[in-house]
C-alpha cells in the first residue's frame, strides 16, 4: 500500500486542483512547479471546472493488477475547458457511445483498491458525458 502517495494526491484526485502560472496565466494540470509554457515558477493553486471534451479514447481488456475487476473499461484523454489535457477513465457510458469531441464532466468514483479486498479504497476523478450543457 502506498498511503503517503494517495494522501499527497488528494487535492488533485478529489477536486482537480492544479495551478495557474502567475507570470503567463496558463492553467496547469496535473500541477508542476515549473510552468510548461513560460518556464517560470508556478505554485499558485487553481481549481478546474471539471468540464472538458474527449480528445481520444480506448477500451482496456487486459488490465494491470488492481483493475482486473473493472475490465472492460474505457480510458480517455480529456481536453479540459481551461486548456490542459488529463488522462482519465470514462464512466456512466458504454464504449460504443463514446466519440471524439464528446462533452464530459468530472465526477468522483472509486479508482481501485490498493492491496487485497481489505486494502485501501482509492477514490478520484473520472469523467462522464456532461449532463447539462454549461
Amino acid at each position: 500500500m502506498e498511503i503517503p502517495r494517495h494522501w499527497r494526491l488528494r487535492k488533485q484526485r478529489y477536486s482537480l486542483v492544479g495551478e495557474v502560472c502567475p507570470h503567463c496565466q496558463v492553467r496547469i494540470f496535473p500541477p508542476r512547479d515549473v510552468c510548461p509554457s513560460c518556464g517560470k515558477e508556478a505554485r499558485e493553486l487553481y481549481t478546474f471546472s471539471g468540464r472538458g471534451e474527449v480528445y481520444s479514447y480506448t477500451t482496456i481488456y487486459e488490465a494491470p493488477s488492481g483493475f482486473e475487476q473493472q475490465v472492460p473499461y474505457t480510458v480517455a484523454l480529456i481536453r479540459l475547458e481551461e486548456g490542459p489535457m488529463v488522462t482519465a477513465q470514462l464512466t456512466d457510458v458504454s464504449p460504443e457511445e463514446v466519440q471524439i469531441g464528446m462533452p464530459v464532466e468530472m465526477v468522483t468514483r472509486k479508482l481501485r483498491t490498493d492491496g487485497d479486498e481489505r486494502g485501501l479504497i482509492l477514490y478520484g476523478y473520472k469523467f462522464r458525458p456532461r449532463l447539462q450543457q454549461a
Binding site: S56, Y57, A63, L77, T87, K126
Partner: peptide
C-alpha cells in the same frame, strides 16, 4: 501519479494516439 492510477497501460497509450 497521473496515468497509471486511471488504469492506463502502454498499449492503451498507443491506442489513444
Amino acid at each position: 501519479d497521473f496515468e497509471s492510477p486511471q488504469g492506463l497501460t502502454p498499449t492503451a497509450q498507443a491506442a489513444l494516439l
